[in-house]
Design a protein around this nucleic acid. Structure first.
Lengths: 214, 214
DNA sequence: GGTGTTTGGATAGTGCCGTTATCCAATAAG
DNA sequence: CTTATTGGATAACGGCACTATCCAAACACC
């Protein structure tokens, strides 16, 4: 399959595919001669993956490149590769450690992990981007005056733990060993907006049940 | 309080505050004379809210303006205002209704709502942006070959229903009637990244429990 | 075997967006 | 009086995701 067909089958403009090739999101096709390259089904699949990450997962192109770089890195073990790929994701602005709300959020987050018994996660607080994101979000809440709901935070955390179990089950039940890392990354990237959509639908449903349509 | 102090107290550059004023994200201060305007605590709070929505919630400026416009609209009842504000949020690209995966995702989503008994949400499928987002996400998954997990989808949905109940409880227990809409919007915008962070922490925890650090 | 089309590669341009910088005359502060 | 700061208007900036334009080489068709 050549560029034009790849474009037609994926619905992505040829100019955009060239851009992705340049940016290293898509591996080059098999070079037949100076002006011809041959693509196959793996290119099509990868292209769909890239598009899903960008359009549905809202990842910047540079992040997609980084994530896929880890996924493709055969020199590392699967677990490490997956960890590296997931840690490339979040992209919350660095918290200002001098800010009083940020420091309070740190204390609150650590307390939360203790209380939940997430001892493994606790070991990662100094380096995990997920932990940093949590601190930034909690600090933003506190800065706006919402400070009487540590209970609520723990409830949310427990629900997310259930979600995480489903995430890992999904990866486990998936057959192909080679695709496991990709599946895990995809799960992390694509289910986020999916969960967001389900949550808002649930809010609409629950709100209608409680208050009617008014 | 004048511009410089507002800037100092919020940590936002004066040029940026001027930009927000121009864009209508921040109401103008009380005009003392041609070259002086006086701001108060409500401006500071609103500014923090705007910053949180943009930096933590990753909302585009135009969306923030739209959302706040609904929040401030006194001509509507609270429920309507909240609904309008929340519907201004999502911003997933329109699904291509001719695409076979999109049509399949529609069927699957409707089936899911039936099965969950979300009869109220079902009434909104043609208009709710949350429903559209769900369809786009499911279609992306199916397009990549993951098609044996309707069970999983239902499990996620149930967890999100629990989350939604917490969301609504939080708004209910909050005192000030005037702030209820704002609280609800804030919850929708800021808890999304917070839940994402908690979920990834939970994944790290659960993964370490199951497989160790390897 | 000539002719019009398509190829990949390189480079430049486009449009949007959040922010920042520059000027300005009027006014406040010391 | 002097100096700094104010709000307002406008322009400039830097990043990002594409998109368009050129090109010569190679194919596809009759």
């Amino acid at each position: 399959m050549r560029l034009a067909e790849l474009s037609r089958r994926s619905g992505v403009a040829t100019a955009t595919i060239k851009y992705y090739l340049r940016e290293g999101l898509l591996p080059p096709g098999r070079q037949v001669n100076t002006t011809t390259a041959e693509y196959d089904e793996t290119h099509l699949r990868r292209l769909r993956l890239v598009r899903a990450m960008i359009q549905v997962g809202r990842l910047p192109v540079a992040t997609v490149r980084e994530v896929l770089g880890h996924v493709d890195d055969d020199s590392l073990g699967r677990t490490i590769r997956l960890g590296a790929a997931l840690w490339a994701l979040p992209q919350v602005p660095e918290p200002d450690e001098d800010d009083e709300f940020v420091r309070a959020a740190h204390r609150e987050a650590e307390e939360l992990l203790d209380r939940l018994g997430w001892s493994n996660a606790k070991l990662l607080t100094s380096i995990s981007p997920a932990y940093r994101s949590l601190v930034v979000a909690v600090a933003a809440f506190r800065r706006l005056g919402y400070d009487r709901d540590t209970e609520l935070l723990a409830s949310y955390a427990k629900l997310m733990h259930e979600t995480a179990k489903l995430d890992l089950d999904f990866v486990e039940t998936h057959p192909s060993e080679a695709e496991k890392v990709e599946t895990a990354v995809l799960g992390a990237v694509l289910t986020e907006p999916m969960l967001g959509a389900l949550r808002r639908l649930a809010q609409e449903e629950e709100s209608a049940r409680r208050y009617g349509f008014e």
